[in-house]
Write a protein that binds this DNA or RNA. Sequence first.
DNA 1: CATGCGTTTAAAATCTAGTTTAAAACAATA
DNA 2: TATTGTTTTAAACTAGATTTTAAACGCATG
Lengths: 202, 202
Amino acid sequence: MAKSKNTEQKIFDAATELFMEKGVDRTSVRDIASKAGINLALMNYYFRSKENLFDTIFTNLVTENTRELLKILNSDMGLEEKIRSYVNAYIDMLTANPLLVPFFMAIIHRSQEKITQMKVISNLYGTEKFSQQIVDEGKKGTIRRTDPSHFFVDMISMITFPFAIRPLIMDRNEMSEEEFNEFIQERKEHVTEVLLKCMMPC
Amino acid sequence: MAKSKNTEQKIFDAATELFMEKGVDRTSVRDIASKAGINLALMNYYFRSKENLFDTIFTNLVTENTRELLKILNSDMGLEEKIRSYVNAYIDMLTANPLLVPFFMAIIHRSQEKITQMKVISNLYGTEKFSQQIVDEGKKGTIRRTDPSHFFVDMISMITFPFAIRPLIMDRNEMSEEEFNEFIQERKEHVTEVLLKCMMPC
DNA sequence: CATGCGTTTAAAATCTAGTTTAAAACAATA
DNA sequence: TATTGTTTTAAACTAGATTTTAAACGCATG
């Protein structure tokens, strides 16, 4: 029982990195083993199969990274403050983990049929309370009447999409890593502003 | 020389469909051959390798589908009309071809290093004229001063991202195919409005 | 009509990847 | 120390993918 947790963890970590970097299908079990510095068969010993290892990792990634965001979305903040914190927290999370979005995009494409994974991701977006808030404030006249589903899609689009096409943005604008990060930091303010402005009761 | 063009085309078409549907890595040359109704080795004869076939298809997909959009972006329309046509044309194009975005996202992840080297990519976003227009009108005061690179990213994010996460949106809102398409059609008006509103000179 | 050329097919060789097996090493404990 | 359960190793197995080679086909031209 000695090194068990240790080895299992090493496999888990190595696989996570490789999956995110090269994609699941382009990562072989042998890659994982060699990166983790363990014997090939141990992957099968601890996780029954590559696909099962992937499921484990995937679920873990989603739940780990969305806890905070969900909390904000379902908090009691006012609409403006909520939007601002959500945008900031989301962008911070993705900045710390820039491969997350491209990885997710690839997974959605890869496993459309795998409903379970879709369900896991759907958790990402527990928006009932937030939607209600938008409808309510629309009725009160505090903001323009706004369709919450479109609004939410706008929001996550503007937040996450730049990470999905990062290489293109960098290439197009001849940006270095740092310049791209600056660009992303600027977007915190920018996206918040766009979202608030378009629901202002003109 | 009899069936040459024919066979080459059959391979090309079959591969295009499969790549878009299942992803490049999960499509085997056998799949392609059987779908195209040709012998396994013919893929190798016409396109030297699977990877080379993929490059050909990818380049073709990009150029075919961006011609129209680029024309609009570099036309002499006024800003408002230009934005409206661009959003409409882009959404129409993706509606006709709903796998395009998820496919691209997967490709960006799959071949990051390769993609920036591909010259076709720069074609995707030839935005000089459009950017200039935004800067000019900002100076004139017709619109708020707006950073063109953020604006352009906002625009393509809101247009394309919903297609990338289509299964999630459908699952979350319990939508049928048709309902999703309606949702997307609504977005033409919605996105245009958001974009125009946020550059209005308050 | 046979020669040559582009095209197509078939079979074999090579490689890569996931999984399994069987035995060895190890650790804990009775 | 002997026993037992866990962990590790090396090697084998299986399946499939890709590439190569050579042979067959069909047709137009000399």
